[in-house]
Write a protein that binds this DNA or RNA. Structure first.
Lengths: 146, 146
DNA sequence: TTGGGTGCAAACAGTTTGCATTTTC
DNA sequence: GAAAATGCAAACTGTTTGCACCCAA
């Protein structure tokens, strides 16, 4: 399961010429094992033997390589998520914090037209959708994730 | 011009029962005079006589009242913007940092359908478009705003 | 007069960086 | 052996908070 993800991360990182070190492998392993969104701090807590800076540096590397994405929350916080796929959006549960990937981006065309009309050289766009997932509605859970 | 904005901010703040104090008026005035996006730090710098905490508290108040919006940048930063109007999106120039409001939100319908399909109780959505404005393309300016 | 608002400083969260040391290629 | 990566601690950015004091309603 997650070893597939780990393989994907590892191979893409090495492909680009980055070295395979023990701490880096540890971070990749931990990240690939996360089932949902995570914070660098959580990864660091799971890997006491790895320096905090290395955790941040590695996550940043994954971010730059497009293997992880940063998901902004409604209230200003941020969470990270493995994303081996390309451009996509998210459905964020404001109660339990679960984040679901939205594969198809139906707004691209609209965004392109808009940018063209405004004479902007388009660089990218970000779309996040916030709501409460089915389970949280049933359990009447309070809003947690800021 | 901006006095209209100031009036709008002031009246809405007082309408809700918040007191009119000198520091608060100072912040409202400064915020209403910003032509583009701003940071609390910039407002604080313009108002040395007002405590930093009050600046943050007042901007937060405006945020809660929906009179100012927080605009996330591509790289993780944030800027603030006066927004007397309701729900809308932004066109952000990644070079000069200019932010243009996009009045019409054409994605609402699509977002609603998506949430429905995923059985999410929709709470809101966020859409930001990043690119380079016409002037920055001409001047071949480098990317600045993170 | 009283509760909301303020200022200050300290605390805080999240993240980056300088630098000497270690490791991989 | 050279370049890359690490670990630590310190620095930094952006923001919130505790608390004594102040002032608008």
């Amino acid at each position: 399961m997650s070893s597939t993800i780990l393989d994907a991360l590892s191979s893409r990182v090495e492909e680009r010429g980055f070295r395979s070190t023990a701490p880096r492998r540890d971070v990749l392993t931990a990240v690939s094992q996360q089932r949902g969104p995570f914070s660098p701090e959580e990864i660091a807590a799971q890997l006491p033997m790895v320096g905090r800076a290395t955790v941040y540096r590695t996550i940043r590397l994954l971010l730059d390589l497009g293997l992880v994405c940063r998901v902004p929350l409604e209230g200003g916080g941020v969470r990270y998520l493995v994303s081996v796929q390309g451009h996509h959006h998210h459905l964020v549960c404001i109660s339990c914090g679960q984040i679901r990937d939205l594969g198809d981006c139906a707004v691209t065309e609209w965004v392109e037209k808009l940018a063209q009309r405004a004479r902007y050289q388009l660089h990218g766009h970000m779309l996040e959708i916030y709501g409460r997932c089915e389970r949280c509605q049933e359990r009447a859970r309070p809003v947690r994730a800021r």
